[in-house]
Design a binder for these strands. Structure first.
Lengths: 134, 134
DNA sequence: CGATACCCGATGTTTTTTGTCAACTATAAT
DNA sequence: ATTATAGTTGACAAAAAACATCGGGTATCG
């Protein structure tokens, strides 16, 4: 099990915007410089955050990104889901010949993994961008 | 964030051995058939479990694997660490030009990720093979 | 000795993750 | 209006991780 840099990057971006958007939109170029992130990749992530309604964009000169709601109403889970689909993906199953066969109800492990997922989701739901800013 | 099939497979194997080793060692061939796992790959995983001292092997005809300690003393974390190094790997950092620069102390996110790691490890430490057998 | 089953290193394939590129559109400032 | 800035979009490429296979070994039982 491992985390992805995607999630880490996305959180850095959101956090940077939360801190610096008081006087207008924050441009990707600025985030990228200050956080030392790969610029085109970051752009993609910002797109996902926008599609996930976590940020809104302003185009043109002086443009950039703003948070779409108050930092206290954006959880880490929201951010990770926006860029990764799910904060934690359970892949419980095995190959049976050629086709993948997912676990059925009787599978003990499925329960374990889902329990873990709940734990992880719970942790991430209870941390907001605002809570990281203190 | 996602889990790996490796971890899932390894747990299935350990569980299968726990259930079936009463009358002697359990062969990989048997586990592989009953659990529908890829056989050579499973062999690799069993090797890792052996190096991690979770199982012991018996060679030759009628050979196979046995648990190296009581199911109640093998946690899921033990198993995952044996095959994956760490149950949950934190990759907190970013590229700065060419060289990777890891987070320093001031990094807020590092704390978040480490907190999550603790949560995950805790969950996995508190589940034993025995507890899955009920 | 022969059949079984673990041992082990090397190699190959697939998928996911990470990163790059180029052409486009909207906006502000001049 | 023109130009520079900055987001939009989709396709592509590289790297890493995960998943899997292969082949030649060694130990043990019958």
């Amino acid at each position: 099990m491992r985390m992805t840099t995607q999630g880490d990057y996305a959180l850095r971006c959101i956090l940077a915007i939360a801190y610096k958007s008081a006087k207008g939109p924050v441009a990707i170029s600025r985030i990228v410089e200050e956080e030392h992130l790969p610029s085109d990749y970051t752009e993609q992530l910002m797109m996902k955050l926008r599609h996930g309604k976590l940020v809104k964009s302003v185009r043109g000169v002086k443009g950039g990104y703003l948070l779409n709601r108050h930092p206290s109403r954006i959880t880490l889970k929201d951010v990770l889901e926006a860029v990764e689909g799910q904060a934690f993906k359970v892949i419980c199953g095995h190959k049976n010949g050629r086709k993948k066969k997912m676990c059925s109800g009787e599978c003990v492990l499925k329960g374990v993994w889902m329990g873990l997922k709940r734990k992880i989701d719970g942790y991430l739901e209870n941390k907001t961008i605002a809570s990281l800013m203190k």
